[in-house]
């Protein structure tokens, strides 16, 4: 086998390896899933679907594309939660009617609180225990999660569950890099690369237990795959599967 053949093989292998980037990071409290803390019902606060498109010059959110995907995303969330035995109550802004004024006292501030606390606190900052790292997958189990204000604890009585979540998808389309190099080295792949965008899909979920006033589960995953229905279904099912265990 001459050097050229080895080179072809190496190039093919590196192409595949470069296409399998992915990160999954889960942080959860040790109490989660224990008796009395089984997550069987979650109130999901207005799931977000964001489509970000980057050009060479700037990154912009495509509002139209984002909005068109939201209802499908809600259905997918619901279906995959049910398949894992979790009842999901999705509070969608689109469904608000004139009698839902309390939403602005209860759930809108709670969502804001969860986002803020996620930004301001880490699981590690509270009391870190064990974290396992293996091939891009990190699962951290902690004594305690980021603390939210206990003033939301009354919502557990109103909604019949202490678990409230934020779920979201963000897809980021970027211009493909190294097209010219590919074109010169492997022309067919190079030509094909001009027709495809580089896409990263992010999925995140944050679950809070308002009874104990803490975030009990936080998951962020990033895959360099398009947000097709199959890919999203796979991500969502896996996520709820982990939560339901």
């Amino acid at each position: 086998m001459n050097k050229k053949r080895y080179f072809i093989l190496l190039l093919l292998a590196s192409l595949f390896l470069s296409s399998c980037r992915g990160i999954l990071r889960i942080d959860q409290t040790k109490m989660m899933g224990r008796k009395g803390n089984n997550v069987k019902r979650i109130v999901c606060l207005n799931p977000d679907y964001e489509v970000l498109i980057s050009t060479k010059d700037q990154t912009q959110k495509s509002y139209q594309k984002s909005a068109s995907k939201e209802s499908t995303f809600n259905k997918m969330l619901d279906r995959n939660a049910r398949k894992n035995g979790i009842q999901l109550q999705i509070i969608d802004n689109e469904d608000l009617n004139k009698h839902d004024a309390s939403f602005f006292n209860d759930l809108a501030p709670l969502k804001q609180e969860l986002l803020q606390v996620s930004y301001l606190q880490n699981f590690d900052n509270v009391r870190n225990n064990t974290s396992k790292f293996r091939l891009g997958k990190v699962i951290g189990k902690h004594e305690q999660g980021p603390l939210i204000s206990p003033r939301f604890s009354y919502l557990a009585d109103i909604y019949g569950t202490p678990f409230f979540s934020i779920n979201g998808i963000a897809t980021h389309k970027k211009p493909k890099k190294g097209k010219l190099l590919l074109l010169l080295t492997i022309p067919p792949v190079g030509i094909a690369s001009f027709f495809f965008q580089d896409v990263d899909t992010y999925y995140y979920t944050i679950i809070a237990d308002v009874r104990s006033a803490e975030i009990i589960y936080r998951e962020v995953r990033q895959v360099n795959l398009r947000a097709t229905e199959a890919n999203l279904n796979s991500l969502l099912y896996d996520s709820f599967h982990i939560i339901s265990k």
Binding site: C20, L24, L225
Partner: peptide, 13 residues
């Protein structure tokens, strides 16, 4: 399967 963020059988391997 090399991508831990999406479970098998999807993705690169």
């Amino acid at each position: 399967f090399l991508n831990n963020a999406i479970p098998a059988p999807q993705g690169s391997y």
